[in-house]
Computed example of a mutant assay.
Amino acid sequence: MSLALVCMSHSPLLDFAEPPKEVSAAVDDAFARARDFVSAFDPTLVVSFAPDHYNGFFYDLMPPFCIGYEAHAVGDYGTSAGPLDVPSTVAEQLAQHVIDHDVDVAISRRMEIDHGAVQPLEILFGGIDTVATIPVFVNGVARPFTRMRRIRHLGQAVGSFLAGLDERVLVIGSGGLSHDPPVPQWATATDQQRAMLLDGRHPTAAARDARQQRVIDTAREFAAGRAPIRDLNPEWDQHLLDVLVSGDLARLDTMTPEQMTVDAGNSAHEVRTWVAAFSALAAAGDYDVTSCFYRPIPELIAGFGVTTARPRTGPTGRD
């Protein structure tokens, strides 16, 4: 077994927004470095920790985390639609191992995923079915949120399972960092919005386009300083990155959902995917972060980060 990690922000606006050219170039360079890192590692299996944005998981049943035995991408914001290549037997073994290690994880034999899980696969591999992938949903938008230590425990359990595989495993964390896009909150939602949050599966093309256009319009207003959403918080983002780089992940246990929302926005909870991914990597021992990009990008409504990491000892590429 050998492990490597890529954590990255995603944004539905990547193909719809126009940040300054130097910002776009910097993001493209960070993606290119991550691709080179992954290409050198040449993974045989991917475990992807990712959130959802009310495209696959809804309030009719909202688990804190869920392992997919099969998965289908819904194709929102122009991302790929279709099935992932999920090794179902390995996914089943992973779920049993996680449960045996006192983390009560849900499972799905028909998981639907959106751009949050798809974008990293497209950016790193050029498609969603080029490498065997086990998707692990981590709730990052829908209250109530589990404590951060439970996210660490999830990652640790996943990592201890991966340690027993004869595979080169790339662990992905997708989401964050600070951002507050116009995702409805149940407490303040209209009746129409609540219907979507409860079960908005398989919307019409017109309904999906309208929902996506609202996000695109909000991003333009936010970049112009006019949108009524929380500002990005680079200091909060940098502190999180510093802790992840340090390896002392237990420091994150003090983070509370309430304060995360105040400090970094309603969707900052997506950083749970990073915590799970780094915790999985840490299960193999000390690690080194080999690259770390960060930029607050209003046009993407995101504090945008891309990191790569690998264990301090052991294989780092093809066996």
Rank of each mutant, 00 (worst) to 15 (best):
G225F: 10
S48G: 07
D100R: 12
F31H: 15
P19W: 04
E299V: 03
D166V: 01
E22Q: 14
S24M: 14
H202M: 12
L249W: 10
A284Y: 10
I134E: 06
S267C: 08
A210Y: 01
H115P: 01
V306Q: 03
L3V: 06
R272L: 03
T218K: 07
I297G: 06
D209R: 13
D36S: 15
T290G: 08
G155V: 10
F145Y: 15
G176W: 13
L170N: 10
G116M: 02
M111E: 11
A268E: 02
H101C: 02
L281D: 09
R312N: 05
A205Y: 02
M62P: 06
M196H: 12
C292H: 05
V169L: 04
V103H: 04
A282S: 15
Y54C: 11
G155M: 09
D231T: 06
P64V: 05
D209M: 08
I151Q: 04
I113H: 07
D209Y: 00
A264S: 12
D28S: 15
R35H: 11
G303P: 05
G247Y: 07
P51N: 10
M111H: 04
A227E: 05
L45Y: 11
R295N: 04
M1W: 00
R152Q: 15
D253H: 09
D237N: 07
T190L: 00
P19R: 10
L45Q: 09
D242I: 01
F278Y: 14
G305Y: 13
E221T: 03
N55K: 10
L198N: 11
G116I: 03
V47T: 12
L300P: 06
I172Y: 02
M111Y: 02
Q259T: 14
L177R: 01
A142F: 00
H10P: 02
A187C: 00
A40H: 14
R201L: 09
A280T: 01
G78A: 12
G78P: 04
T313H: 12
T316M: 04
A282W: 00
P144I: 03
F57M: 12
V105W: 09
G200Y: 03
P257F: 07
A206L: 08
